[in-house]
Design a protein around this nucleic acid. Structure first.
Lengths: 216, 216
DNA sequence: CGCCATCTAATGCAAGTGCATCACTTGATA
DNA sequence: TATCAAGTGATGCACTTGCATTAGATGGCG
């Protein structure tokens, strides 16, 4: 029957999370899935990239819908607290920690994808303009200080959260992830609200002055 | 002459930074180094792991000495500002951004090593107890709030800084990295001093209560 | 000069890789 | 029942990988 596809995905999840995306051959995935065939992966997913995209497509929808729900709630309310947005970034991913259907593996694979030099899968899958993360950015931006130098790097909060969650997932299943998640949200909140030091302010002013030479 | 070893390291730096540690074969490194030999890498560095360790050994000393100098200065002074320690973490690495002798490549490779599932090189190379980063930890710890839940994750400031620097290095050489560096120090400072939210505090108390059942 | 350690070069090989091809089974549908 | 698309199985091939082997070059030193 067509349970092979699911078993292939499950095997790929486990192996990719265990040894990294490049550390597993397609043959191994076939073998681990139980199918003694050597080409089932190619038949169902064409190649390694397709395999990865299938894994992402399996897990992304729940993350997306959960985050959109949180952002809906944020927009409906009056409170413009940064921590609410940090939670909207973290919680949908943190929910995967307890997802026995390959959630922790998904987090590890995702982190591996985010900071690799060459994009294995099309970046629009992670940076879809209609995705919740872009909506998140638009909501975060007005809460930040109006300092151009900052916006550039603040959005790495996403990358940071992803890596932390992958580390958590890698350290085995835990009975309770709530404390970890809550503190991760604290840290993300701190990143988003990091105050600009006098030294940074001065350097930013110097740069701005150098860019517009009419004021000297 | 024995310039081959240096050219091999230079080629490996560039290729590893460009395509990742697993994305380059040893043959490619040989070829890119100019040597048409197919085994120069194995002769000089034994295998891929030795190649990577040689790259790290080339760059780590300057980072170590610079950080120790900053920590010496910190201990000699009276000011116990967290930002001084954040600077001691970041600045020695940030100096590599402008190091044309493979500094940016080193940063990218280092970040790639830090969050991969399987440790390619012995972890004691990154976690040497006599290293500056362990000394840094000991100095940071007394400045943090006495909340057990935090210490565990605060030290990911190192990971965060590494990732940010790798991204900066990847985005090409810049004329001036001072503003970037200063703001990165701001963010690391914010991470170290991230306030514990009421929710986190409550969850930590619940956990502590569950661990010591004598108080119910 | 002659010796020898160091280094470079060339060839080859076993194992592993992605991928193609072809044959077989299955189950739904006309 | 006959047909046919979807899926599974098995074998082989061209290629790359790391690594071994062997031979040749280089240069310091007695």
């Amino acid at each position: 029957m067509t349970g092979t596809r699911e078993r292939l995905i499950a095997a790929a999840e486990r192996l990719f999370a265990e040894r990294g995306i490049d550390g597993v051959s397609l043959r191994e995935i076939n073998h681990a899935s139980g199918a003694k065939n050597a080409i089932a992966v190619q038949y169902h997913f064409k190649d390694r990239s397709g395999m990865i995209m299938a894994i992402m497509a399996k897990h992304q929808p729940s993350v997306e819908s959960a985050r959109h729900t949180l952002l809906d709630r944020y927009e409906a309310g009056d409170d413009r607290d940064v921590r609410l947005l940090a939670a909207a970034l973290v919680r949908p991913l943190a929910a995967k920690l307890a997802d026995t259907g390959g959630g922790p593996e998904f987090l590890q694979i995702r982190a591996g994808l985010l900071n690799r030099p060459d994009p294995v899968i099309p970046p629009e899958m992670l940076e879809d303009p209609a995705s919740s993360i872009c909506r998140w950015r638009d909501l975060v931006e007005p809460l930040l200080e109006a300092d151009a130098a900052r916006l550039h790097q603040r959005f790495t909060a996403n990358l940071y959260a992803s890596i932390e969650l992958a580390r958590r997932a890698r350290s085995g299943p835990h009975t309770d992830d709530r404390l970890f998640t809550s503190y991760l949200i604290d840290v993300v909140t701190a990143i988003l609200g990091a105050p600009v030091s006098p030294e940074t302010r001065r350097l930013a002013d110097e740069r701005d002055a150098a860019r517009s030479p009419l004021s000297h």
